Computed example of a mutant assay.
Amino acid sequence: MRPGPLNLITDVAGLVVGNAHDARLRSGVSVLSAARPFTAAVHVMGGAPGTRETDLLAPDKLVQEVDALVLSGGSAFGLDAASGVMEALAAAGRGFAVGPALVPIVPSAILFDLLNGGEKGWAENPYRGLGRAAFAGAGTRFEIGSAGAGYGAMTGRLKGGLGSASAVLGNGLTVGALVAVNALGSATVGESGHFWAAPWEIDAEFGGRGPARAYPATEEPRPMKRTGEATTIAIVATDAALSQAQAQRLAIAAHDGMARALVPSHTPLDGDLVFAAATGEKPLAEALDTFALGHAAACTLARAIARAVYAATPQPGDLQPTWSHLFGT
């Protein structure tokens, strides 16, 4: 298993990502889309999620493919980002056909960044416009760190952000991850700059510090945010041909990566969620391919989470320090 050429989720051929943010708002939106609909699923492990159109991603529902997936800041206000993406898709003639009508399918998830110091007293919800802008700017190369849905994100200790990573497997399949890290827990061990995800790091992609020599095994962590303020939302993607049920298993397996990279994770006080996307470009050769995909999804998501925190940049008015400020690059 090795990173793809960009070490981004867009190493999965056919996928593009767009980011948009508002510096005064201190929030933003990230959109994953493709030239044609793709299979998608979702699995929620946190106790306080915020979502739109996720019920239709169950394997027994009529719609089996989506046109885009949206990750957004803004708490429930951020769900309107999907409306902007829907408008852009409709203008491009995209959507699920119901007779002569086309309905773009755009599931989304949000994180809470309303208390991060940004100006939130808007007269009109800004997230619809941010969704349109993110969709319009989508491409194979995009910024991580303080960008998109992770622009105003925070963790229990350090500034959060947007992360991405990829892996090319020995069987020729590719897996990628995109994540907005706004965690209740911490991405680093104790007071050190060592990432929990260090055992899965490839090519010093988040500093190359390796695992911490000691772990706080007896520590009983307490929340460093108030109830409802934390959520890590992610997408894992592959070029494999998966059914919606198989994609859901991929999302479930990917949650292991979240638990490896953030301590604690999946608490009653956050909305941790993983979407899975499959473009269907490559058939599964054997049953063990799904086993390999699940492992790769977990490893890749763990790496993407660490890369989000590692790449975050200082901004005026930050309420938390960045990893780079405390530990250097």
Rank of each mutant, 00 (worst) to 15 (best):
residue 179 V to F: 05
residue 153 A to N: 14
residue 149 A to S: 11
residue 169 L to W: 09
residue 120 K to G: 00
residue 143 E to D: 15
residue 116 N to Y: 11
residue 162 L to R: 08
residue 171 N to L: 02
residue 138 A to D: 14
residue 184 L to R: 12
residue 118 G to Q: 03
residue 161 G to A: 11
residue 118 G to H: 07
residue 125 N to P: 03
residue 166 S to L: 09
residue 144 I to F: 09
residue 172 G to F: 03
residue 170 G to N: 14
residue 116 N to V: 08
residue 155 T to N: 12
residue 112 F to D: 06
residue 164 S to Q: 10
residue 117 G to P: 10
residue 154 M to P: 00
residue 115 L to E: 12
residue 139 G to E: 09
residue 123 A to Y: 03
residue 179 V to A: 03
residue 166 S to P: 12
residue 186 S to W: 14
residue 124 E to V: 11
residue 141 R to G: 11
residue 162 L to G: 07
residue 154 M to K: 14
residue 131 G to D: 06
residue 178 L to G: 07
residue 155 T to M: 13
residue 112 F to I: 09
residue 136 A to W: 03
residue 151 Y to M: 07
residue 162 L to Y: 13
residue 164 S to T: 09
residue 122 W to R: 04
residue 168 V to S: 08
residue 120 K to A: 05
residue 149 A to V: 04
residue 189 V to N: 06
residue 130 L to W: 07
residue 165 A to R: 13
residue 180 A to V: 00
residue 112 F to Y: 15
residue 187 A to F: 05
residue 147 A to I: 04
residue 120 K to F: 05
residue 151 Y to K: 06
residue 139 G to Y: 11
residue 177 A to R: 01
residue 144 I to L: 13
residue 117 G to F: 03
residue 138 A to C: 10
residue 139 G to I: 07
residue 181 V to P: 01
residue 126 P to D: 10
residue 158 L to S: 05
residue 186 S to P: 00
residue 126 P to A: 09
residue 121 G to F: 01
residue 136 A to E: 15
residue 167 A to C: 15
residue 181 V to C: 05
residue 115 L to P: 01
residue 113 D to Q: 02
residue 115 L to V: 13
residue 188 T to L: 07
residue 145 G to H: 12
residue 116 N to S: 05
residue 173 L to G: 03
residue 150 G to W: 10
residue 116 N to M: 08
residue 140 T to P: 12
residue 157 R to V: 13
residue 173 L to M: 07
residue 129 G to D: 06
residue 177 A to H: 02
residue 177 A to Q: 10
residue 146 S to H: 12
residue 133 A to N: 09
residue 171 N to R: 12
residue 176 G to E: 11
residue 157 R to K: 15
residue 184 L to K: 10
residue 154 M to T: 15
residue 136 A to D: 14
residue 139 G to P: 13
residue 115 L to A: 13
residue 120 K to I: 00
residue 171 N to H: 04
residue 126 P to V: 03
residue 157 R to F: 14
residue 171 N to Y: 02
residue 134 A to K: 08
residue 157 R to I: 10
residue 174 T to R: 06
residue 188 T to F: 07
residue 135 F to M: 14
residue 185 G to Y: 09
residue 164 S to R: 15
residue 146 S to I: 02
residue 124 E to S: 10
residue 160 G to A: 14
residue 183 A to Q: 04
residue 137 G to I: 09
residue 140 T to A: 14
residue 117 G to Q: 08
residue 172 G to C: 04
residue 131 G to T: 02
residue 166 S to W: 07
residue 167 A to R: 15
residue 158 L to V: 04
residue 168 V to R: 15
residue 147 A to C: 00
residue 150 G to I: 03
residue 181 V to N: 01
residue 164 S to A: 10
residue 141 R to M: 08
residue 155 T to K: 05
residue 138 A to W: 11
residue 132 R to Y: 05
residue 128 R to Y: 01
residue 153 A to K: 13
residue 149 A to M: 11
residue 165 A to C: 12
residue 127 Y to E: 01
residue 188 T to Y: 09
residue 169 L to D: 08
residue 113 D to G: 07
residue 131 G to W: 05
residue 159 K to H: 13
residue 133 A to R: 15
residue 150 G to C: 09
residue 150 G to K: 02
residue 174 T to L: 04
residue 179 V to K: 03
residue 114 L to D: 03
residue 154 M to A: 14
residue 166 S to K: 07
residue 121 G to N: 12
residue 179 V to R: 00
